[in-house]
């Protein structure tokens, strides 16, 4: 078995703005099953970070437990990483973000890690609008324990062994919108054209950016009758909008039909250019998004694209009015102002 990736790369591999090639954003060779959707998502993250020219050491990737949570080893090998406890990735991400607000945080989770054991943490991190990218690699089954139905498996979906799932599925995107997530997107691991710009926009969104990515489990959930197989998702995908992420520095040159397109300005001045494909849907209107999702469910469709975005809500740092700079940039002088200052503070409470 090959566990070593050859060191040679294409001699004409393009370089990004800070002089790195894709190689500097890669991780080690994946040990997931061949053809796993998760590997495509990893590749999309690598591609997005390369295109955004982020310094790899300005990124932290945090995960829980599961096939999906193994993936941080397989991308951004030069970034910070933390493999935490099952379902507890949001706590670690919150702590890290509180300490250093300048980093890009990738939370990587799966349907089990988010919709089952980690549900409590998931809903609260949304409620707090923590500034992070939260990616669920959603395959509708517990691949690491031989493919039992997970909480996101659709009712009526057939497992590889032939049993039909009798339970309602948790719709993570609807739930995230309901709980007040400020950026909600849905995508498919087999559609990098859509996924890469979504990840780029999510990285630039200030607040909680949630990406529910359907990621077929080739080993246990790619059978006929499964609603999370490559074939089924491709047939039932309904794209609400195509998306161009326009970084701050770039001039907008393309012209769009205003009736069919929307621009969303992000905090840092970059823009999301959305070309609507679905009617009666407005990415900045929660009610229309919830309706669209419900209607799609009735039609057995999977809505993909950027579903909802809100740039008004404050992120956790804004709400808590935390310090401006990462904690590690403060010196002892600022952190320990001395006995005299303490006396002053104490006096204020008397």
């Amino acid at each position: 078995m090959s566990y070593i990736k050859p060191l040679f790369r294409h001699p004409k591999l393009p370089k990004n703005k800070i002089g790195y090639t894709l190689k500097e954003y890669e991780g080690s060779l994946s040990t997931l099953c061949a053809g796993c959707g998760h590997d495509s998502i990893s590749a999309a993250i690598v591609q997005a970070c390369f295109e955004m020219s982020v310094e790899p050491h300005h990124v932290a990737k945090i995960s829980g437990i599961g096939c999906s949570s193994k993936t941080p080893t397989y991308f951004l090998g030069n970034s910070h990483g933390f493999n935490s406890v099952h379902g507890r990735m949001p706590s670690i991400a919150t702590g890290a973000s509180m300490a250093n607000k300048d980093m890009v945080y990738f939370g990587v989770s799966g349907d089990g890690d988010t919709a089952s054991i980690g549900m409590g943490q998931f809903v609260h991190v949304i409620r707090r609008n923590l500034n992070m990218v939260y990616i669920v690699m959603n395959n509708g089954c517990y691949g690491l324990t031989k493919g039992q139905d997970s909480a996101t498996a659709d009712q009526g979906s057939k497992s590889k062994a032939g049993s039909i799932n009798p339970f309602q599925a948790i719709d993570l995107a609807s739930l995230a919108i309901e709980l007040g997530a400020s950026f909600v997107a849905q995508s498919f691991s087999g559609d990098k054209q859509q996924l890469v710009p979504l990840i780029k926009a999510a990285m630039h969104h200030k607040g909680f950016a949630f990406l529910n990515v359907i990621s077929p489990c080739v080993t246990f959930n790619n059978n006929p009758g499964s609603t999370k197989s490559y074939d089924y998702v491709r047939q039932h995908m309904q794209t609400v909008s195509t998306l161009d992420f326009v970084p701050e520095s770039k001039q907008i040159t393309a012209s769009y039909d205003p009736g069919k397109s929307t621009r969303v300005a992000l905090h840092d001045g970059s823009l999301i250019q959305l070309n609507k494909l679905a009617t009666d849907w407005n990415p900045e209107n929660r009610i229309s998004v919830v309706n669209a999702l419900q209607e799609a469910r009735i039609r057995n469709e999977i809505l993909t694209g950027l579903l909802y975005v809100n740039t008004e809500w404050k992120d956790l740092h804004g709400t808590l009015n935390t310090a401006d700079k990462p904690l590690n940039t403060y010196s002892e002088k600022e952190l320990c102002p001395g006995a005299k200052k303490l006396e002053e503070i104490n006096r204020a409470y008397r």
């Binding site: 994946s30 990893s42 790619n222 490559y230």
Partner: peptide, 15 residues
């Protein structure tokens, strides 16, 4: 081919 893109992602020399 099921078009999972795994080969495209893993190819060290982007062939």
């Amino acid at each position: 081919c099921i078009e999972c893109d795994a080969c495209m992602d893993v190819c060290p020399t982007s062939c």
